[in-house]
Simulated assay, not measured.
Amino acid sequence: MTVPEGASEGVSGAVTGTATGADGPIRVLIADDQPLVRRGLALILGPEPSVTVVAEAENGEQALTLAAEHRPDVVVMDIRMPVLDGVAATERLARDLPGCRVLALSTFDMDEYVVAALRAGACGFLPKDSSPEELVAAIRTVRAGEAVVAPRLLTRLISAYVRTRPAAAGGRPDAACRAAADLTPREAEVWRLLATGLDNNEIARTLEISVSTVKNYITSIFDKLGVRDRAQAVIAAYESGLVQVRRPATDT
Rank of each mutant, 00 (worst) to 15 (best):
R163E: 05
P132F: 14
T164A: 12
S159A: 10
A237K: 03
P132G: 13
V190L: 09
V149M: 12
D182I: 00
W191P: 03
V245N: 05
N216S: 08
L242W: 03
S131D: 01
E134D: 11
S159F: 10
A168N: 03
V114G: 01
R156I: 07
P151A: 04
L242E: 09
P127Q: 05
A116K: 06
Q232A: 14
C123G: 04
A160W: 06
A122V: 01
S210L: 12
Y217D: 04
T219C: 05
F125L: 02
R119F: 02
T155F: 13
A233Q: 13
R165L: 04
Q244K: 13
S212T: 14
G241I: 07
R165V: 01
R230G: 12
R246M: 01
E189A: 07
R165Y: 03
E146M: 13
E187D: 11
R246T: 13
A188S: 10
A150Y: 10
I203V: 15
K224P: 00
L183W: 04
V148S: 15
G241M: 08
E208Y: 01
L153M: 09
G226S: 13
R163S: 14
L207W: 01
A169S: 13
R165C: 11
A195N: 06
A137S: 15
L157I: 12
A167E: 02
E187S: 06
D129M: 06
L194V: 08
R246A: 14
L183H: 02
I218D: 03
A144D: 14
A236D: 08
E239A: 13
A180T: 01
A188L: 09
L207Q: 03
Y217V: 01
I235W: 09
G171Q: 12
A138D: 07
L194D: 11
G171K: 09
A144I: 12
G145Q: 12
E239N: 06
L193E: 07
A137F: 01
D182N: 04
R178C: 02
L225N: 05
P185C: 02
G145E: 09
G197Y: 11
C177F: 00
D174E: 15
R192V: 00
A122Y: 06
G171H: 05
V245R: 12
S220G: 12
L135K: 08
S212W: 09
A231P: 03
L126I: 05
W191S: 04
T184Y: 09
Y113E: 02
V214M: 08
L194A: 05
V243R: 10
R178W: 00
